Amino acid sequence: MDHLDRCDDSERAWVTEAIGMVEADANRSADTHLLPFPLPREWGVDLYLKDESVHPTGSLKHRLARSLFLYGLCNGWIGPRSTVIEASSGSTAVSEAYFARMLGLPFVAVMPTNTSHEKIELIEFQGGKCHLVDDPADVVAEARQLAAATGGHFMDQFTYAERATDWRGNNNIAESIYAQMARERHPIPAWIVMGAGTGGTSATIGRYARYQRLPTKLCVVDPENSAFYPAWVSGDPTVRTNVGSRIEGIGRQCVEASFQPAVVDRMVRVPDAASLAAMRAASAVLGRRVGGSTGTNLWGAFGLIAQMRAAGQRGSVVTLICDAGERYGGTYYSDEWLAAGGFDLPPYLEIIERFLATGEWPAAKTD
């Protein structure tokens, strides 16, 4: 009988050890904190922030990178001699560089030439290399070509984010949120608020709530210049925008494969200045800096809470601290940078201050 074996015992042993190392990192990291955001108790609506900035690489993307590495290892895509390549100029690249270094693999992040020096330094600190591309629209194609030229593996976060994570449980972020909420006065959130970059985390949360037969609704907040909101409203997944998002980590110019619109109950388009105003307001309340996408989340959460109060509803809302604000000292926390970019924060800061004092929100800002 003819047969052909493609099994290399030494390579299989390396993969087994690599999976163990990635899983051990998860075990060492334990879980992230769920922090109450201070609101008057008599409002009857509580707000919680799941602090993803405390991961070893400082952001929510640590979970995604871990899942993508396990997915690639278990699929046989990543081996002991693989060069790992990703199209990312942000937190995903930082986290993937961390795991690549853990496994002794070279890592290359393909990114636009205008990527901030802070992000490049973080990737290089984790042992990665940065491959710069002039046109941001060419980043994914360049990553694919580079993977083909080097015989490496293109991680492709925008395609595989929603399938690399087990949405039914297995310590995903949704399972963690519900476990941590168990002893709160409103343990089942009325809403969970998420931004979408790949769309993988929102897909996981929306699927998990349905799988567990929970009444929680999913609100996805989307920044300016992102295709997710107009595509969701119109039902047209081919929508594209002309420029990219200015809120790092969320928003895309096209609808990525990992975004699952059918599990989203509401979408809110958030002005960039509103995101940055909420980021700064939250930093003042929390006594620590948070990133711009956290501000986007909070703008959406504040509007939902005000709406619940106006309807006489009680309950809880959960959102995320996606990353820390120290990464944005030269951008979002720079008054000069904001002025150069034409960001007008004061009108939005006034809305937030009024909300925190009274629980009221302009009706036009809730959709």
Rank of each mutant, 00 (worst) to 15 (best):
E175Y: 04
G127I: 13
R163T: 14
G152S: 06
G169A: 02
H131Y: 15
G128Q: 12
H153W: 13
V110S: 11
L122G: 01
H117C: 02
V133G: 11
L103D: 03
I120P: 01
L105R: 12
T115K: 12
A147F: 01
D156N: 14
A147Y: 02
I123W: 04
A147E: 01
L132R: 15
G151A: 10
Q180T: 05
L146F: 09
D156T: 00
T113Y: 07
G127R: 10
Y98P: 02
N170A: 12
V140L: 13
F107M: 13
E175R: 09
F158G: 01
M102P: 00
F158I: 01
E175C: 01
G151Y: 07
R168P: 00
H131D: 07
G127A: 10
P112Q: 07
M102R: 14
G151T: 05
Q126G: 02
H117R: 13
C130N: 14
V139K: 15
V133Y: 11
N171Q: 10
F99Q: 06
E142F: 04
A174R: 05
I120T: 13
T113I: 07
Q145I: 00
D135F: 07
A137K: 13
I173D: 03
D166F: 07
L105S: 07
T165H: 06
N114D: 12
E142C: 14
R168L: 06
L132Y: 02
H131L: 13
M102C: 02
A179G: 05
Y178M: 12
A148M: 04
T115Y: 11
Q145C: 09
A164R: 08
D166S: 07
F125H: 09
E118M: 04
N114C: 03
Q126H: 14
A147I: 01
L122R: 14
G104E: 05
T159F: 11
Q145W: 01
E121Q: 13
T150R: 15
T150N: 08
R168A: 09
A148I: 00
E175H: 10
D138V: 00
F158R: 11
A148E: 10
D166L: 08
N170M: 06
R101N: 12
A164S: 15
I123G: 07
L146E: 05
